[in-house]
Design a protein around this nucleic acid. Sequence first.
DNA 1: GTTGACTCTCAAGTTAGGTTGAGGGTGTAC
DNA 2: GTACACCCTCAACCTAACTTGAGAGTCAAC
Lengths: 149, 149
Amino acid sequence: MENSLKGLLKIGEIAKITGTAVSALRYYEEIGLLKPTCKSGAKYRYYKKEDISFIAFIKKAQNIGFSLDEIKLILSERNSGKSPCPKVRDLAQRKITELREKVKDLKLMERDLKKYILNCCPEEDSKPDEGNVCKMIDKVKISTKLSQS
Amino acid sequence: MENSLKGLLKIGEIAKITGTAVSALRYYEEIGLLKPTCKSGAKYRYYKKEDISFIAFIKKAQNIGFSLDEIKLILSERNSGKSPCPKVRDLAQRKITELREKVKDLKLMERDLKKYILNCCPEEDSKPDEGNVCKMIDKVKISTKLSQS
DNA sequence: GTTGACTCTCAAGTTAGGTTGAGGGTGTAC
DNA sequence: GTACACCCTCAACCTAACTTGAGAGTCAAC
């Protein structure tokens, strides 16, 4: 065991901590998203502690809708000596706009779904053959139509 | 031309109106999401006018994060004689929760991205080798860490 | 000094949501 | 009656983001 491996984490360890699959971490390396420090004589991967929060960042960003390629872009711009600003700024601005529109649609649909829950199934489920099968879909359709700006 | 085809739309027509690819509409039929009325002696697909708003609904729902399978579930429950309520209600409730969390994360990241734009590139792009390469990533990391509830 | 958990590479498979292409019918306008 | 745009099926392909499996090396413990 070399000194340089002090404080580093093996792939299985960081996988467990971050709740990520080992195979996913290897995949991130393959696509150039997350390189391990990897000093072992054998080809074992070793990761820094800071990689834990970077992996958390990847997950959040992914959840919000960034692709791994976009995340990679941000990172690679940071790591190159060049100014990362123009590209990242652009990416950020476009993502904000996109997310805003999604939230708008989402709120609309949330309202419709809530209305559906209240109207259609207040206490017990509505019975079939009562002329009340479910009004939700049409309501949603109406809002959907109106919201097509 | 049969009488029964009056007012119906051919696949290319409804595709154009809704901004959907013909191949996508055929795919929707294949997975049982959207059946055409399809009365032609040849196997031409014919769609009702109401399908236009249904296709719009599909697109909105998809954009928000429903899978085609989920959309199909909602629809098939509606079309069966059975009460659609329990399943759809459950689906709706879970989606609302999920969307709420996404909006929270999204707002956090939006804040970070905005800060980045203001701090890092107020007028002109920051130059490299000025000790100011880009502070955004670390800031995002911090919020990301904090927001891990 | 060997067992057993862990790691490696490399190739192939998976899922969703489609697209593309070959090979061939349809329908209507001139 | 023939162009020509449109439609059909079926199979194969595509992308992202991984997962799975085979076959083999590694390491800490007992």
